[in-house]
């Protein structure tokens, strides 16, 4: 574990100016409005592992994905790739080739006017990796085979494929520059379940075979459990809990994490009444003071409303970080017994 992580993120933040146009703003007499999409988060991803970020829409997880590959410059903090500041790393083709991204929407992530072979070969050409048309063709064929498509599919256009097949093409494109680090932004959420399983299996196989490191973004806790080594739970632009996958699922500590798990409809729960979390996610333009979860939290007190909790080792746990005053003070009833999820619940 002494090895340096492939990716480190330190106090990363990204703010967006969502003010109305200047003239309207002046006429209405309002100030500038800032959306704090990501508001000071830190994590590291060791080589060959998967870190997942989960959260509901608007929690900033996709913004993190885009910050990490340099699509947005950070407003604060920094991203360190292989010990090198991201901006410097991205300026070097050899470093840039080592990070790739897979997107959510298989219908928008492939240029509809390009043939599949050109889509897959784009990174190869951009990095001048395989000179010669014949060698390139062979490489594309190999990549298509690797993701479970036929080399003949290269001649087709994206619209001739189903959603799952398109996602395979996306993966082939991402793999074509021999990357070490893949950012996967909701890679299966636009897919049907049976196809989702295909893609998740493929991604796991590829990780095992090629030693890839993943940053996996998802809103689906069950999917995240299948692929992750560690999981970060995000709420309103902040990490509220960061723990090894098994620890998070067996002993979730943050009240939001627990609420999320409670809320998920589980197949085994046929007939059981769930306890929904009250309230809705507040707007990230005017987030609540103190802990962002406090308006919905059952354990809220005055300190939660005033003071922002830091992400610190959770009390009475060997592993895992939690940003919660209640956990820190032991007001949460201590380490929960195995959560009542899944099979244990059907016994009722």
């Amino acid at each position: 574990m002494a090895e340096t992580p492939i990716l480190e993120v330190e106090d990363l933040a990204r703010y967006f100016d969502v003010s109305r146009p200047w003239l309207q703003r002046v006429l209405a007499g309002e100030g500038k409005r800032t959306l704090r999409a990501v508001d000071g988060i830190s994590f590291a991803i060791p080589r060959g592992t998967t870190l997942s970020l989960v959260g509901e829409s608007g929690c900033g997880k996709s913004t993190v994905a885009r910050l990490v590959v340099g699509l947005y410059p950070p407003s604060k903090g920094r991203v360190v790739f292989e010990g090198m500041d991201l901006e410097r790393a991205r300026a070097i083709a050899e470093q840039r080739r080592r990070m790739q991204m897979i997107f959510q929407d298989p219908y928008a992530s492939l240029n509809p006017r390009w043939r599949v072979k050109d889509i897959v070969a784009e990174p190869i050409r951009a990095f001048g990796m395989t000179p010669g048309a014949a060698a390139q063709q062979a490489k594309v064929a190999e990549l298509l085979t690797q993701v479970g498509l036929s080399p003949l599919d290269g001649e087709k256009f994206p619209h001739e494929f189903s959603g799952g097949q398109r996602q395979r093409i996306s993966i082939a494109r991402a793999l074509s520059s021999n990357p070490d680090f893949l950012v996967c932004d909701e890679p299966t959420s636009a897919l049907d379940v049976s196809v989702q399983a295909q893609i998740l299996n493929l991604m796991k196989d590829l990780q095992a075979r090629l030693g890839l490191t993943y940053l996996f973004i998802s809103h689906n806790l069950a999917v995240v459990r299948q692929v992750s080594d560690r999981i970060g739970v995000m709420y309103l632009g902040r990490l509220v809990e960061l723990a090894p996958a098994e620890t998070l699922f067996t002993t979730p500590r943050h009240p939001y994490t627990r609420a999320l798990m409670e809320a998920i409809p589980d197949l085994e729960m046929t007939g059981r009444q769930r306890i929904p979390v009250g309230g809705e996610v507040p707007s990230p333009i005017s987030p609540p003071s103190g802990c962002p979860f406090h308006p919905r939290c059952p354990l809220v007190n005055d300190r939660c409303k005033a003071e922002r909790p830091a992400l610190i080792p959770a009390r009475a746990m060997k592993q895992g970080l939690t940003a919660c005053h209640a956990v820190e003070e032991g007001r949460d009833g201590g380490v929960p017994a195995a959560q009542r999820i899944g099979t244990t619940a059907t016994a009722l």
């Binding site: 699509l71 990070m99 991204m101 928008a108 992530s109 240029n111 784009e122 990095f127 996306s170």
Partner: peptide, 22 residues
């Protein structure tokens, strides 16, 4: 803002090339 353009940006294709080819 479509993802195929973002994918090209992640690879590091120049802006002019993205404009013309994508």
């Amino acid at each position: 803002n479509k993802e195929y353009v973002l994918a090209a940006r992640v690879i590091g294709i120049s802006q002019l090339r993205i404009m013309l080819t994508h």
